[in-house]
Design a protein around this nucleic acid. Structure first.
Lengths: 339, 339
DNA sequence: TTTATTCACGGAAACGATTGCGAAACAGAC
DNA sequence: GTCTGTTTCGCAATCGTTTCCGTGAATAAA
């Protein structure tokens, strides 16, 4: 800890602690002359207020918690990037917690954050989460929360999402357009609204194209990329008619690539792949991957901005502040595009 | 904040605050019966100690700061993964700060962490950093610090690195073996020890192979992938004799790919590329990328472990606790390997 | 019965900052 | 000279925990 505190400053200046405190906080009650003296010595001695004393007294920590499933993932790391930037601009600190897509961990983390350690929470829900009781507690405690990307719809607060239904529809439509008829759908979060919306887009696109939906083509991924690759591979081996893969998350698109490699399916000749992804080098893959690119950085920025606006103005976060950003379909070689 | 505090518990139980506190901390001074009663009510009411009051009194925050250049980068995000895991196991919280390779930001962040907000710091130095004065202050304040990957050698504390010299040597040797003679070296942190070691490996490998070193083949990357691509592209256009690229960081390997694309150089026929990288899908690139893969997750874990050992036992972090982990050369198509 | 000793707990002072309130000091107005 | 008002500052309470010390009662030792 920085060893110098208010008391020492006060003694050195022959002033009271309260005067020094007010001088440093630029209170109107303190004369300009005193303020100057105090601030001079404070900078000379490198005084920094003890954040814990300050937080205790003020009942606010100038800290937000970010809860995400993973960090080794381009989407989430870009989002963190945006969050951290806004946080710094507003003088806030960022605590980070990873759930590893594990519901129990998410519960524990949320509970631990309910003790005043953070002034607000930004969260992207774990793929396993079905119950929203732990989030309800946050509302009870009046702890401002903003969801991003992976939303819990039962909790009424703001959320930043992308046009998941549209994206799912467009992705599927794109595959259909390219001649696919037996399209596998890979998802991680089937019961999360994000997964359902993407899937609904998939279903509606199929229906609009008069292509029958086959539940057998639905694959729910789990943990571990090897496991997921095996799942896809198995299905590919069982069903030679499959000619398209729509991966609702990046890791599953990769699993799709590997599974195709393993089973000798050529992309895009035999099978076409499209996936949600924020890979900067999706165009350098072999073949380059057609993607739905989410504005991950902007999502982080927006979510954080809404949270901080609420915190600064001491207003509750309203559902009406939610935003839906647009994702972008980038056609590349994996669906027979250029490149 | 969780609204229930010690005083309320004490009143409800007709006990004193100190007794309740001790009961919850399992003090030997409290009878088993009382402990049970207290703990029962505490869990019933969902009591959670106020972390700021506790930190203030105990003079420790149970929080560590992690300072890294970027998070949207597989190496750092994997390292964070390791750090967060160890932190959670030890009951610590993780504050995250990004420097964006900016020295001034690094200084500011380090200064702000010198106020007792964190009990320790894990840091990977920004590429711009040359001065170590801000780190010296940390030692003065006795704030335990562990460097990982990007080390500041002037500061005497533990650091977790990889065998950068060897890796640089092996990477270069590999290119030479594959017939390259005009090897470009791309680096971000030329004055950091990590950059120097990798470059020294490069130089020594050249010397051992009796290949002349041409300073013109040294490219120091900057910010922005477009900028870096342009740099490489320019050099490639100027000098058609270049037949190899050794990228000391992942982003520069990507820049190399793009530059080759732009200039029509075929990989690996015309030019071969090797790069430090933790891309999970390096094998899916076109062509698959020969990499030096660092054990990023393990680096994070080790660095955090050393820090927490020091914190828990209240011992200073010693330089002798430093570790050097081994990187792995994975040969792929970009240097003419299989795949 | 008296004296130590242990046990179980309460009082109160910390930790360092913020802030409501009061009180000197000084000015100007009457 | 008194009164009111402003400026500038100090006192002390407060945030919620932890912990040093003290104390009454019970038990053991003499």
């Amino acid at each position: 800890m920085s060893s110098v505190n208010l008391k020492q400053l006060a003694q050195a200046l022959d002033l009271s602690v309260s005067t020094v405190s007010r001088a440093l906080n630029d209170s109107y009650e303190i004369s300009a002359a005193t303020k100057e003296k105090v601030q001079l010595l404070a900078t000379q001695l490198g005084y920094q207020p003890n954040p814990y004393a300050s937080s205790l007294r003020r009942q606010q920590s100038k800290t937000v918690g970010v809860i995400i499933p993973e960090v080794a993932n381009n989407f989430f790391s870009l989002a963190i990037n945006g969050i951290e930037e806004v946080a710094r601009q507003n003088g806030y600190h960022v605590l980070i917690y990873l759930t590893h897509e594990n519901f129990a961990q998410e519960q524990t983390i949320v509970q631990h954050l309910a003790n005043g350690r953070v002034d607000g929470i930004l969260i992207s829900v774990s793929g396993e989460t079905q119950d929203a009781a732990h989030f309800a507690k946050l509302r009870e405690l009046n702890l401002p929360t903003v969801f991003f990307d992976r939303v819990c719809e039962q909790t009424d607060t703001a959320s930043i999402t992308t046009d998941d239904y549209d994206s799912g529809y467009r992705a599927t439509h794109h595959l259909l357009e390219r001649g696919c008829r037996r399209i596998m759908h890979l998802t991680l979060a089937q019961h999360l609204s994000i997964g359902q919306k993407r899937m609904q887009g998939y279903l509606d696109a199929l229906r609009d194209a008069d292509v029958a939906f086959d539940p057998a083509l639905l694959v729910r991924g789990g943990h571990g990329s090897d496991h997921n690759t095996a799942l896809v591979q198995q299905l590919l081996e069982q069903d030679p008619s499959i000619d398209g893969i729509f991966a609702a998350v990046e890791s599953l698109a990769i699993a799709g690539y590997r599974a195709c490699q393993a089973t000798g399916r050529r992309i895009p000749a035999d099978i076409k792949i499209i996936g949600f992804s924020n890979l900067e080098m999706a165009d350098l893959l072999n073949p380059s991957l057609t993607t739905i690119r989410q504005p991950a950085y902007a999502i982080g920025r927006e979510a954080a901005t809404i949270l901080f606006q609420g915190l600064m103005k001491n207003r509750p976060i309203l559902t009406s502040q939610s935003q839906e950003l647009k994702s972008e379909l980038v056609v590349r070689a994996s669906t027979g595009g250029l490149g």
